[in-house]
């Protein structure tokens, strides 16, 4: 798929960026896409997309429509549409997705459950306080 293909159609505007020198504990709920480059101890629930940078280290579950992984993750990942494991990705946990893409060099230890159809629901509501 090309530059403007449908690959990243669910990754919209990246609203939140957790920088590489940031450590965070707690769960994150975001409506727009979110990118994490630092350390996170907690779960992420995104309505659209989640990007895990190359140097990110995450302990916790991720739930989103599309997840792109380039860093280390210890936890389960549930995606309603697609999971991309890039060559620097190290995943220890179970995956559940409709489309799975694993690039050469990615490390994945765990079970994988493939959904036959795109899940539509299953997304958490954004909580705003």
């Amino acid at each position: 798929m090309g530059l403007f293909g449908k690959d990243h159609v669910t990754i919209g505007k990246v609203e939140t960026v957790l920088g590489p020198d940031v450590a965070f504990k707690g769960s994150i709920v975001s409506k727009n896409s979110i990118r994490i480059d630092g350390e996170l101890h907690g779960s992420i629930m995104g309505e659209s997309g989640v990007i895990i940078g190359e140097k990110a280290i995450i302990r916790g579950n991720i739930q989103a429509k599309q997840v792109i992984i380039g860093g280390k993750i210890k936890g389960n990942i549930v995606s309603s549409y697609r999971i991309d494991l890039q060559n620097t990705a190290q995943v220890e946990g179970d995956l559940s997705t409709h489309i799975l893409n694993i690039v050469d060099g990615a490390i994945f230890e765990g079970n994988c459950h493939m959904e036959e159809h795109e899940k539509v629901v299953d997304l958490p509501k954004v909580v705003r306080e």
């Binding site: 990243h8 590489p20 990118r35 480059d37 990007i51 940078g53 190359e54 140097k55 792109i68 991309d84």
Partner: peptide, 11 residues
């Protein structure tokens, strides 16, 4: 100015 790629590459 921050450039955020939509994949795991560096920002």
């Amino acid at each position: 100015l921050m450039l955020v790629p939509h994949d795991a590459k560096k920002t």
